[in-house]
Design a protein around this nucleic acid. Structure first.
Lengths: 229, 229, 229, 229
DNA sequence: GATGAATGAGTCTTCATTCAT
DNA sequence: TATGAATGAAGACTCATTCAT
C-alpha cells in the first residue's frame, strides 16, 4: 500500500536491486574516499565501502580488481582533476604576478587544503611504503606538477621585474609547505584535539600570503642603505 | 653481584633463555620503531617485531599489553627525550636571538627531521583517526611544546628588539612547516622516487633560515612612516 | 530489410543477438567439455564456459539448470553416442571372432581412448564422490554396456570354438583395463611430464592385442598339430 | 569419578588445548587424506580438515603453508613409504621369479590397491591439470619406480630362463593396469553402485595372476610333451 | 530469448592474543 | 620469565545463481 516504490497502482514488489552501471564507479569511489580518509587504508573494510555505496560486496569487484586497485582509483580520480583545474586557471590568467600568486595560494587552500581531499595526501604519505608505485604517481603527477605551476608564476614575476630574483626551486617548497602541512594537520590531528586553540586558519593564511609577497617584493631601487645589509 | 652474568655462586644449570627484564623494553621498542616506520601500523606484525628483537612473540606481551600499547610506547619513548633536549638547549643558551633561532632550526633538522624519528610524525598523522588519544598526546606534548619553545625564542627576540614585532602564533607554523613537511616527505615519498631531483636539503635549509631571519629582521629605524603600518 | 535474420516479411529491427535455440546446447556442451577436461569440475567457471561458447552467462541458464546439470549433460551427450556406435558395429559385423575382437579394441582406442573423451572417464571417476548419481549412470550405461559388448564377442567366439573357454567376467576387465588406464594417463599425467619416455602407444596396443588373442587362442586339440600354426 | 582426565583430585578445568607439536602433522595428514579421498581436492574445506584433526583452522597453517602444500604433503607422505617398502621386499627376496612376481602383484593389491591409498592415485590423476608439479612427482617417484621394480623382476626371470623373452616395457603396463584400474574403480564408482554385481576381486586377481604367469611361461622346448601339462 | 549487472554465501588466509609448558 | 603452539575472529576475494533490462 504505502509502498515506497514507484508503481503506485500495481503492488509490484520493489526490485531487489537496480542496474546502474554508469553510476556505480563514482559511488564506490566516493564511499571509498570517505572510509579511507576516516580510517586509513588497512582499517577500511571493503564490506563497509560496498555498504556505504549501497551495493553488495561482490559488486565492488565488478568495477575494481581489489582493494589496492580501488585505493589507486580513489587517489587518481580525486586528485587529478584538481591539478588540471589549477593549471587551466593559471594558464588563462593575465593578472599581475603578485595577484596571481595570492589567488593561487588562496584557491589551493579553499579547493584542496580545506577539504577532505587533503586527507588523500595524508593517505599517500602514510601508505607510500606499501604502495611505492602510487607514491611515484603522486610525486610525479601531483606534487611535481603543482610545484611547476607555482614555479612558473614566480618565474614570470621575476622575469617581469614584479618579483625580486629568488632561488625558485627552494622557494616553492617554502611557499607551499605551510599550507600543505596545515591541511594535513586539520585532517588528522585536529579532529582529535577539539580544544587545541590554534591560530585560526584565516590568520595563518593571511600571514602566509603577506609573508610570501613580502619576501618576493622587489628590492627598493633607492639609494638606500638597506642594499648594504 | 655486579656481574651481568648468571649467578656464579649457584651451580644452576644455564638457563635456556636469559632474564633481561631491564633491556627488553628498549630492544622491543627499537625493533617496533623500525617496523612501524617501514610498513605502517597495520602492516606491522608482532611476530616480526618479536623476531627482530630476538625474543618470542609471547615475551612481547610480558612488557606491553598489546599492539596498541606497543605503538604508543614507541611514540612516547622516542619523541619525548627529543623535545626535552630541545627545551634544555634553549633554556641554557644565552646567545643572540637570531643565532639561537638558527641553531634551533638546524638542530631540529639534524636531530629529528633528518632521522628515522621523523617517520613517527608520519605515523601519528596517519593513524590519528584510529588512535585519537595518541594524537592528542602528540599534539599536546610534542607539537605544542615545540611551538612554545620556538615561540619563546621569537618572543624573547622581539622583546629585546632583536626581531621585529610579528604575529608569533602564526609565524611559528610558517617557520616550522617547511622543515616538518620536508622531513615527512623524505621518509615516505622520496624513497619511492629515486630520481626525484629535488633541491638538496642543505640548500632548502639555508634558504629557509635566511628567509626566516630576513622576515624577522628589525625594520630600519629610518625616518620611515612604515613603522606605522 | 536485408537483415540476415529470418523474418523477411516483418520490418523488424536487426536483433542485437541471434536466436539460435537449436545450436546453443551443443555449443555450450562443447565449450564445457573442453574446460571440464582441462581443469576439472570445480575449477571450471561457468563464466568461462559461456565465454568460450560465445554467449553470456545468463544464457547458459536458459538451457541448463546449473553447473551440475551442465556437467551431467556433458557426460551423457558425449559418451552415449559412442557406446551406441560400438554396439551397432558389433551387431552388424559378421567377421571371425578374433578379427572382430581386434577391431573392437583398436576402434575403442581410436575413437575414445585416444581422444579428449577419455578425460570424461577421468572426470567421472574423480567426481564420483560428489556426483553419485552420475557415477551410477556411468557405470550402468557406459561401463556395463561396454563390458557386455566385449563379453558378447568373447562368448560368441567361445561358442563357435574360435576361442578357448575362459572366465569371461574376469577376462573382460583384463582386456579393457590396459587401454582404459593408458587413455586416462595420457589425458592427465602425461601432459605434465613431457619427457616421460614411455613405450609408444602403438607398441603397447599391438602388444596388448597380441597378448589378448594369445590368451584366447584355442588350446591345441590334444595330439598337437597346432604347434605348427 | 571415572573421569578420563588426569587430575583426579583437583577439579582443575580441562585445558582448552594441548601442545602436541610432534603429533599434529600426522593427524592433520590423516584427516586431510580422509577428506581429499572422500570429496576431492576442491570440495575439501580446510575447516573440516582441521575439525577432523581436532584442531582449529589456524593450527593447520602452523604446519602447512596452505591447501596446496597440505595436498602435496598428503600424497608424498602416504605414497612414498609404500614404494620404498616394495623396493626393499624385492631386493631382499631370492625366490623363483614366478613366485616373486605373483607375490609382488598380490602384495601390491593388498597394501595399496585394496586400501584407501588407491584414492590418492585417483586424486593425482584428477588434479594433474591443476597440479602439474605434483603429477610429475607422482610419475617419476611412484609410477616409474614401481614400473622399474616390476621390470627388474621380469628381466631377471627372462635372464634366468624362467620367463620367456618379452617386450618388457610394453608388458609392465599390461600387468599393472588391471590392478590399478580396478583399485581406482573400487574407490570411486563402486561405492555409488552398491548393486553392481562385479566379478569379485579375488577372482579377478587370481585370473590376472594366472594370466600373467601364462603369458610369461617359457615356450615349450620344441618337441612338445608340454601339451600334457 | 539474451544479456550481464548484482548478489551473497562460502572459503582461504592472516594475525593479534592466549596459555600450557 | 620465557616460550611458541594453539586459537578464532576478521577480512579479502570468488563464483554459482538470480533477475532487471
Amino acid at each position: 500500500m504505502a509502498s515506497p516504490s514507484h508503481h503506485p497502482a500495481r503492488s509490484a514488489p520493489p526490485p531487489r536491486w537496480e542496474r546502474r552501471k554508469e553510476a556505480r564507479p563514482g559511488e564506490l569511489l566516493d564511499a571509498a574516499l570517505d572510509l579511507f580518509v576516516e580510517r586509513g587504508y588497512a582499517a577500511t573494510r571493503l564490506d563497509d565501502v560496498a555498504a556505504r555505496a549501497g551495493v553488495s560486496k561482490g559488486t565492488l569487484y565488478l568495477y575494481y580488481t581489489g582493494k589496492e586497485d580501488l585505493f589507486k582509483a580513489v587517489v587518481r580520480r580525486n586528485i587529478l582533476p584538481l591539478i588540471e583545474a589549477f593549471e587551466r586557471d593559471v594558464a588563462e590568467s593575465s593578472a599581475r604576478s603578485a595577484e596571481l600568486l595570492e589567488r593561487f595560494l588562496r584557491q589551493w587552500w579553499s579547493s584542496f587544503g580545506a577539504t577532505r581531499l587533503a586527507s588523500i595526501a595524508k593517505l599517500v604519505v602514510g601508505e607510500a611504503g606499501n604502495f611505492p608505485e602510487l607514491a611515484q604517481f603522486f610525486q610525479l603527477e601531483i606534487v611535481a606538477r603543482n610545484a611547476a605551476l607555482l614555479g612558473s608564476i614566480v618565474e614570470r614575476g621575476v622575469r617581469q621585474h614584479e618579483f625580486r630574483p629568488v632561488d625558485v626551486g627552494a622557494s616553492i617548497h617554502l611557499w607551499m609547505a605551510p599550507l600543505v602541512l596545515r591541511a594535513i594537520w586539520m585532517q588528522s590531528i585536529l579532529p582529535c584535539c577539539p580544544v587545541a586553540a590554534e591560530v585560526p586558519v584565516e590568520r595563518m593564511l593571511d600571514a602566509h600570503v603577506r609573508h610570501v609577497l613580502a619576501a618576493l617584493e622587489p628590492l627598493p631601487a633607492l639609494p638606500g642603505p638597506r642594499g648594504a645589509s
